[in-house]
Structures are given as structure tokens and as C-alpha cells.
């Protein structure tokens, strides 16, 4: 198993509620939610840096919406 380091994280009540909710819905620990978020953020950032766009498509209506990352 890869060695890991520990850090303290300060979150607001609202952020903690979202973290709790994601942890419950996705059936993973809060640490796993944050590690997953880091992976996704790095992946999206790398693709946007390459000039790609992040689009969401509604499965039913096929309507597309772009998520703007600043």
C-alpha cells in the first residue's frame, strides 16, 4: 500500500454537510470523497489547459451545457 500523509482540513458546516452527503450517497469514506475530488479536478484542469471544454449533456433532451472553469 502506498504511504500516505495526514493533514488537517478546515471546512464550514455547509461544506461538511456536502461531504457527509457525498460520502453516504457514493458509499465511500470522506477521505475517499476528497481524494476522488482531487483526481477529478486534476483531470478536468489538464483537459481544459489543453484547450478542451467541459460539457454536460442531458440524456433525455440531449441539451448540452458548458461548465465554465475560471
Amino acid at each position: 500500500m502506498t504511504a500516505k500523509r495526514t493533514m488537517t482540513l478546515n471546512l464550514t458546516d455547509a461544506e461538511m454537510r456536502v461531504l457527509d452527503d457525498l460520502s453516504a450517497r457514493k458509499d465511500i469514506t470522506k477521505t475517499a470523497v476528497l481524494r476522488q475530488a482531487l483526481r477529478l479536478y486534476q483531470t478536468i484542469d489538464a483537459r481544459v489547459e489543453r484547450g478542451e471544454k467541459l460539457l454536460f449533456e442531458n440524456d433525455t433532451t440531449k441539451e448540452k451545457a458548458e461548465l465554465m472553469l475560471l
Binding site: 465511500i28 475517499a32 476522488q36 477529478l40
Partner: peptide
């Protein structure tokens, strides 16, 4: 690839 979610109905959307 660790970015995807499950498709199987009993675990849909879970990583």
C-alpha cells in the same frame, strides 16, 4: 481509470 461510476443497478453511480 478512477473517474468512472458504476452502471449495475444495485450500485449505480458509486465510484
Amino acid at each position: 481509470d478512477l473517474t468512472r461510476g458504476c452502471q449495475e443497478p444495485g450500485q449505480k453511480g458509486k465510484p
